[in-house]
Design a protein around this nucleic acid. Structure first.
Lengths: 340, 340
DNA sequence: GTTAGCACTCAAAGCCTTCAAGTGCTAACT
DNA sequence: AGTTAGCACTTGAAGGCTTTGAGTGCTAAC
């Protein structure tokens, strides 16, 4: 059912005001602030209709109205006026990124930091493991008789966290040879393609099948491992918001947020093409702490998925600000990283 | 001034009880639980003497007594009975470590996790950057014309987070040659010695002085960089303790604990030979959140400093348990890592 | 469809009383 | 001199009471 224009407008004001003040919104305050042309009684009629429709709730009969999760959803998709950042804020974003632009790890940390600073909410970042990028070549560095570090060079980064076992009787020359064979085999393919290579079907291993199997195994472990790639910033900022005046809520929030794999799940985006993704309330998402919303954005540069970033906060979140920050951070981040 | 045996005993009971219950300790409860041979009036006299001496305080005239920071210090150094872990707990420690023993990163995480689980306090871990270990050799991996990854092999680990710039006109053969020259130069020295090498005094650079300078520069940056090596676990566990019923205290605590460089400072041990280090209360340590204590332990294996681990909690901390856990974790950790 | 007016509801704040835990002190006892 | 029974005194915590005011819903008139 479609809402009348006036209902939409009123609902928007209610959400706006509630986000700003955290105080249930009354008919009187609405007429005073935004609707001086109609009376509070009329607004009351509209409010009770909106309550009937499930967009508003009352804590008790004689309190003002509070938006429901439905209302926030409508607000974000339809009602909200898109915010713009101040030039000061934009300059801040650029400044931080330019200082750190040469190190991907630092960029990820900076991103979460900027987002948290500008929004006043805890922020999270997750760098993608598999961004669809193509592998250029692969290198082994044998640091023990039976162990080697695998260095993988891709289109735009260097992976160096995988280790394989090497047969002790294999000579360094043989390992170098294996390096060449595998480099040829992998070059131009992405991770998914490589992990799906069937050893049985290949006959050009030149005797290095065991090394091949070890590398694939290491890669698979690497792809699955979660943790470690989650970065959080400003967890303590959640306490700035009045809904977290209750210890149980803080407890609940922190227990989710300190568990890296739960945070991981929050960030795994549902839609591939959606840039900004808003999850409001707990509906369906087990990992989200009660009464929380999560707004995430996935950034890409040169067609490669860099990672997903976002904020976690109370349902009563400043969506205007958060969306504006995520969009602008994304723009700067992508423009900087595209140049690399 | 030395306390009488009875005063010591009474003080010990007060601290014991207060740690256990978090309720101010009364003369009556002391006689009932521990001192059935003397009357509560006598205990009251002793308590007020102990208060006079600065070991106890009262919240108000008609409340029981609470230990002061001084009392906790005396308790830890003199009064406390050393706790032993149950075999169940010991088995738990061994089990976790044996599962992860092959990966140093995982060992660090496991360590903080075990400590936090067993003590119910947030725990922190910091792996040492410079453990005094000797460098074996050094390797360059050039992944771009003008950039190379520096891999450093030491007695017992692999460092691979440093990058240097390479002159574009340098051939791969020259870089390999530089690798050999520098490996020879560094081999058998520790980080400190290397960083102190004076380029002017060396004449066997064979033309690779620029590479040498870049490597030293990268190493120095690496040694200084903090963050990233701090691991935390169980931040949310602080809320289990009744002193954190107040939002301001939580705020205060979290703001310290979410800042990695503050946590870093907490863990930089003051004495070199002290294994277990107890910092009680805020006295002198700016980084410690108000009314908190920090207990840390530094672990070594084969003479190499592995890192520092510890817990952060309220002053009213279960020091018996914490010290016992840290000692036992240390034993297991060191025995496992010595075998590597 | 809008609005003035009024009765009704309900949480929050302030105030008062009661309650019980605990101390300090004095005087008597060993 | 050290110990102890006894009692007055203090004080926060808890519960109950009233007051206050913000806000609604409904009705009747416009």
């Amino acid at each position: 059912m479609e809402l009348s224009d006036r209902k939409k407008k009123i609902l928007q004001f209610v959400v706006d005001d509630y986000i700003e003040t955290a105080v249930p919104v009354s008919s009187k305050s609405l007429t005073e602030k935004h609707l001086s042309n109609i009376s509070s009684a009329t607004v009351r009629n509209e409010l009770s209709a909106l309550e009937e429709l499930g967009y508003l709730t009352q804590l008790h009969t004689s309190s003002g109205r509070v938006p429901s999760a439905e209302a926030y959803k409508l607000y974000v998709s339809d009602l909200m006026v898109k915010d713009k950042l101040s030039t000061k804020e934009l300059d801040y974003i650029k400044k931080i990124f330019l200082e750190k632009a040469d190190n991907l790890e630092e960029v990820i940390k900076s991103t979460t930091k900027i987002i948290s600073e500008l929004t006043s909410y805890p922020s999270v970042g997750l760098k993608s493991k598999d961004s669809g990028e193509k592998i250029e070549n692969i290198k082994f560095f044998r640091f023990k008789k039976d162990q080697a570090l695998v260095i993988i060079v891709t289109e735009y980064r260097l992976l160096k966290d995988n280790y394989i076992n090497v047969p002790e009787n294999m000579t360094d020359e043989q390992l170098q040879d294996a390096e060449k064979v595998l480099s040829n085999m992998f070059s131009g393919k992405n991770f998914e393609e490589i992990c799906n290579l069937k050893p049985e079907l290949q006959d050009d291993f030149m005797g290095y099948k065991n090394i091949f199997v070890n590398v694939i195994e290491a890669l698979k472990v690497y792809m699955q491992a979660n943790e470690g790639d989650v970065v959080m910033e400003g967890e303590d900022k959640i306490l700035r918001h009045p809904e977290y005046a209750d210890i149980n809520k803080i407890q609940n929030f922190l227990s989710v947020v300190t568990s890296k794999d739960k945070v991981m799940n929050l960030l795994t985006e549902d839609g591939k093409d959606i840039k900004i993704n808003v999850k409001i309330g707990t509906d369906g998402y087990d990992e989200i702490p009660e009464d929380c919303s999560v707004v995430t954005a996935t950034y890409t540069a040169n067609g490669n998925k860099l990672g997903t970033y976002g904020v976690i906060g109370p349902i009563r979140m400043d969506y205007q600000k958060v969306v504006a920050v995520l969009e602008n951070v994304g723009k700067v981040l992508e423009s900087i990283l595209s140049k690399r």
